[in-house]
Each structure stands twice: as structure tokens, then as C-alpha cells.
Simulated scan of single mutants.
Amino acid sequence: MSMLKLITFDLDNTLWPVDEVIRHAEKTCSDWIAANHPDAAAALSAERVRAVRTALLKEKPEYLDNLTALRQDAMSRAFTEHGFQQKQARRIAMDAFKVFHEARNQVSFFPGAREVLEQLADSYTLGALTNGNADLKMIGIADLFAFHHSAETIGKRKPAPDMFAAALSSAGVHAHQAVHVGDHPLEDVHAAREHGMHSVWANLINLPWPVELDQPRHHIHNLHELPDLVPLFDD
């Protein structure tokens, strides 16, 4: 039995709490639009944006595999529906998204996240697997990861097997030589074990495990627990 070689991490709610980050990024984006394009600000009420997003997802469910495109196109459409010319609407949406994206990557790590990553990167290949659009370079930890696959780069979001297959391929390892660490019971833990990988439920925000899924064999409430847990997968 080969030893563990690869550890993959989900990002949002695994290495940092994300809800407050997104709220802050959306507010920063709205404030920027209000300051720079006051005539466009009225187009972006929360209800209107929700309605536009719902309509887009109904037309094209695969938007869920590309949250960047969904956000950009939702803003664009809200502006055009508000009377802006398409080209101008697109330009404002793209500029506004840059503001959103910059704020979206200002994260506060869970306790121990950076130290644990640095410690594990000494002995294992690390990879990032996310359905979101976090940018590891902007966050400042890209140097710790051998690769970063996302729903956008792969074209399919977890729990589809594509991202896990890409991770194994990138690292050149077999499924039993890899462990995936993530917060989502279905998209991370269940999906990884279905793909033959080991898995650790990072339950850092204390959520209940869904009754319809088999209980996780390994779970942590604090990232500091991970370095002691990882050697168990070598046996």
C-alpha cells in the first residue's frame, strides 16, 4: 500500500470563513457603482439582482460551474434592463467585477491555516479544489500549492468527479495516495470518497452532518488537528 502523497483542500469555509467576505465584497462593489456610476446603481437592488440571477440560471444551469461569468452577466443584464446600451452595460459590469473580486480575495484565515499549510507543504504535494473563484495569488498562498483547479478551469463543479480526477492527474498519484480536506459534506467529503480518495471533514463552523450521507471517518474542528491526523492515511 503506497504512502500518502497528495493533500487537496477546498478553500471557502475550509481555509477561511467566506460568508462575511462575500457580503463585504458585494457592499464594496455596490459602493463603487454608486460612486462611479450613480445612474447604474438603481439597477442593482438586491431583489433585481436575485431575479436576474434566477433567470440566467434557468436559461443556462451551467452558470453554476462559473460563478465569475454568472456575476458579470447578471450585472450586465441588470444594467441593460435598466436602459443602458449593451456595450456600456458590459464595461461597467466588468469594472465593477474587478472591484468585487479584489475585495472577495481579502480573507481572514481560520486559526492555524497558513502555518498548517506551510508544515504540510514540506512533506506532501498540496492542491486546491474549489467551486468558487478565490485567487490564491491575490490571497498570498499560491506558492504553497502545486496546482489550483476550480469549477471554472475544469468546467464542472464538485461533487462531479472531474476536479478530483484532474487533481490526481496533476499530482501523478493514485486515489488511495490522496486525501481531500473540505467543509461540504456532499461536494467535498462524500465526493472525494466516491472517487476513491481519503477525506477529512473540516467542520470549522460547527454544522450538523446530513443524515442521508454516511458519517465521515475523519473530521476536525480546528486546522491545527490536521498534521496529527494526516499520518494515519499512510498506514
Rank of each mutant, 00 (worst) to 15 (best):
S169K: 11
E20T: 08
E81R: 05
D73P: 05
L136E: 03
N13G: 13
R104L: 08
K87N: 11
V200P: 08
K5H: 09
E26D: 11
A96N: 08
A146E: 06
Y124C: 07
G196H: 00
A51V: 09
P227Q: 12
Q106P: 03
P161F: 03
D214P: 11
T80Y: 00
H149A: 08
A151E: 05
I139M: 00
G127Q: 06
S108V: 14
I7T: 09
I205N: 12
R53K: 14
E187G: 03
V181R: 04
R104K: 03
F233W: 15
F110T: 08
A89T: 04
G140W: 01
A93G: 07
V189W: 01
H24Y: 10
N131Y: 02
I92N: 05
V230H: 10
A192D: 09
P161L: 12
A103R: 01
M138T: 14
A151D: 07
A46I: 13
L213Y: 01
P17R: 14
M163W: 06
D234G: 13
L6E: 10
W32N: 11
G127I: 01
L223Q: 05
V52F: 00
Q215G: 06
A25N: 07
E212G: 06
A46H: 03
R157E: 13
V49W: 01
G127Y: 00
T80G: 00
L67Y: 04
K87W: 04
M138W: 07
C29R: 13
V179A: 10
L11C: 15
L67P: 08
